[in-house]
Design a protein around this nucleic acid. Sequence first.
DNA 1: CTGTTAGCGCTTTCAG
DNA 2: CTGAAAGCGCTAACAG
Lengths: 351, 351
Amino acid sequence: MTQAKRRPRRPGATIEDVARAAGVSRQTVSNVLNAPHRVRPDTLARVTQAIERLGYQPDQSARSLRTGSRRIIGYLAPVDDPFDPNPLMGGFLEALVDAAGAEGHRVLLVRPPHGAADPRPAIDELIAARQVDGFVLADVLHGDARVAHIAEAGVPFAAFGRTAPGTPQQWVDVDSVGAMASVVDHLAGRGHRRIGYLGSTSELPWMTDRLEGFSAGLRRHGLDDSPVLELTTADGDTARTVTAVRGLLRGPDRPTAFATGNDMLALTAYEAIRAEGLTVGRDVAVVGFHDIPLCRLLNPRLTSVRLPLRGIAAELVRRLLAQVRGEPVPGKGLLLPAELIARDSTPAREA
Amino acid sequence: MTQAKRRPRRPGATIEDVARAAGVSRQTVSNVLNAPHRVRPDTLARVTQAIERLGYQPDQSARSLRTGSRRIIGYLAPVDDPFDPNPLMGGFLEALVDAAGAEGHRVLLVRPPHGAADPRPAIDELIAARQVDGFVLADVLHGDARVAHIAEAGVPFAAFGRTAPGTPQQWVDVDSVGAMASVVDHLAGRGHRRIGYLGSTSELPWMTDRLEGFSAGLRRHGLDDSPVLELTTADGDTARTVTAVRGLLRGPDRPTAFATGNDMLALTAYEAIRAEGLTVGRDVAVVGFHDIPLCRLLNPRLTSVRLPLRGIAAELVRRLLAQVRGEPVPGKGLLLPAELIARDSTPAREA
DNA sequence: CTGTTAGCGCTTTCAG
DNA sequence: CTGAAAGCGCTAACAG
């Protein structure tokens, strides 16, 4: 009685319970779980059945203590930038949880406390308490302080976004250049010869990549000496952006299509086009970037570039766990292609 | 040497290292951490210093194994509905991580594997592996299967959204009725007498609450016998919604303002208003709901209702941990007020 | 192929 | 107030 009182254990079955139920010893049960091939088939069946019946699962804390593997991945979420609403936060996180789950790992969310900018203490705590096997980072920039810190601590990680040359090249990223070039392909294929680009002044690598891809696309189609219209505007200042786009639409060589750096900018383009009395899609085609859910709700529905989030997540998990397990890992980063989702904002044009 | 080889331990310091460094025994170090008052001040100082110096933190697995407390909260994320983009996924999750962190807990993400609809196996695994102390659920509906399942398993939980009468009333929710009534207050205060409502046909409780709050607000201002304009349309069918709203705007008693069930519907209202050649804000005021980042980017910037996500998260964590610790918990749910953020889409009107 | 033994790092009685 | 001893549930050596 006192003993029962003393352990406030949840009704969870222990390995011993299973062993007793199956008439074997603890270690046999352990073997069934961790090295099934070393157990005789009939014994295995009996034990497996007992496991099922009792709903047994090893206590992860005990297992971790013993093996050193936590089966948990720490996810360092980016701080959401309200001006470039992050498609990652929704879709990528889901993809990451799925990918980790497929490998028997869970995802623990890490964020510096509200107000604190430096994520390193939060990272250190997790490492010191040995709560994670490694980290996945999103929105990684070249000189990312988090990467440097984690790398120095000698903890495995994998980054969504290219890391600096000096640090481990454990990253996966979207081929933004190629993606934006394919946007130009798409528009050129629909007969557009004057294509504007609506980007952002931000120096974020993916933003500069998109502009670069746009230029490359124009060149590929011999449009680089046709009126190239590049417009970079201050983030968040929608009204000014609308004005600028309207100016372009009134100019002599009015663009018949716009490629944009993200879906919100595409929305701004919609507004400017309408303000000029033109019809989006028919008069001026628009392509967004990110393919956030909003795209399907706009009128006309917005053609956009969908990031391969599931692929990225899977690849990140694969690389991270390879490091954790001490398996050989590719020493180079990986670039994944994005996919253009054609919708009503870029209709096929009459010849 | 063989011994060193055999344990692939991360360089983390152990309690023994600290004890040795401070010249005390292990248990004294443990006491310093878990019962500081039982340690002599000078000893405490010496040990604390050693802890700092070594960057020591208790191994969470070992601690969990011993105490039974995991210091981890499982978060059951809602499956994101593309037609009612969930403001929770971003803001609420951040708020939850913060609130949990303030109580020394971390957040583990739970989702059924991609494709699988039933979240219960995922929940059961977590419980059986004793990986979490309890759950926080979001987007909880009255007859929520997850709640029933977790409650039956006898595991502590706290829900964002009201649970059914039969189940434990461990929930926190937004006062949607009051919030929408205050939207009417806001509009009535700006002189509007004919206010339309743009909602959704969905039977989601918060949506019906918003409509109810709208009606209550009208009544409060004696507007309930003025032309009450309620419009419920099918989710996602933007084009049809625009048409319907345009119809209202052409009618005899044209509304001068719209309250809407969410920000995307407000965006649809913008579109309809413009299509009628009217100006949003000046001719027709619009109020959204959720205050997603988009609100600040629209032109004019959208007045919207901001959910008290931080308050909700804090209260959920408080209630959950009270259960975990066996402290008394309030047997009733809690309703928190939302806040109206006035912007340019509802300008003060000239008399 | 199965059973015995030891110990991961920590907290918690219980004596001193 | 501090030291010794036990054991949480599990896995990995080794012996049978």
